[in-house]
Design a protein around this nucleic acid. Sequence first.
DNA 1: CCAATTTGACCAAT
DNA 2: ATTGGTCAAATTGG
Length: 274
Amino acid sequence: MDTLYPWPELETLSSNKKRVIQQLVEGRQCATELQVIVLHNNKPPQQAEELVQKILWSFDQTLSMLAEVGHHDEVISQNQATYNDECKSQDSSESSKRTLSAFAKDKRGCYKRKRFAQTRIVVSDKIEDGHAWRKYGQKNILNSKHPRSYFRCSHKNDQGCSAIKQVQRMEDDAQMYHITYIGTHTCRDQNSSMATPRIDGPTPILKLESEEQAATPSDVTDLDSVTMWTDVMMGGVGFETDVSNMYSCTEITCLDLESVELENGLQFDDTDFA
DNA sequence: CCAATTTGACCAAT
DNA sequence: ATTGGTCAAATTGG
């Protein structure tokens, strides 16, 4: 698999910064454990849940910010400017490629590909994550049974949020999804509708609801609240399995070069991830 | 009518 | 030449 969104090499970071990141990762780990404890509680106090949530969000944001340093992430407005220019120039030079009817207004395909962004891989049986997403594409992937769906943050336009994610059913376990988050949310997106978009095209997805009844349905607004983290930075990639009746979920945060290599080695999009 | 999804064309990367 | 990522017109749904 190609490395479209490489993580910055850790050598470029000061050792101080490495330590900061390590501390943050450790802190996040602790917060996650606390979260599990809180959620295992029969009646977890609302306040406690929210607090843990906030702590985790804080860690995520800080880690994201640190990660972004050194990256020339494209600014939306700039993107938009070059986008228009390129489309104009291409319309004149390459018009022969297009059909007559499409020539006039069809500008699809004119875009700048985002090069650098934080990536995070999640394996989960849920695709909702508390954010509002809008589907913008779907592709059949070579040697994959299931198509890959492409989502961008719903607040791309109103808040300029550049977060995107890709969702694909696992090869071996169609109940599970392989989700890649690219970029971080710059929007403040609470009250998301939690609408679950269809991801496999016209055929409706079958939902397994048997085991998720334990949790209060209306209150599960955030998948993060039951997310198990596996931080590549701290060592190996252990795939955590189920914790009693909670969702099983594995996240891999790409925090350094090794994780990127690891990501490539695993070849999630190919058949050997099984 | 408006907003979200579907879908095939187009483009970048390899 | 092939493949994956993105765009936007057409379609669907509320």
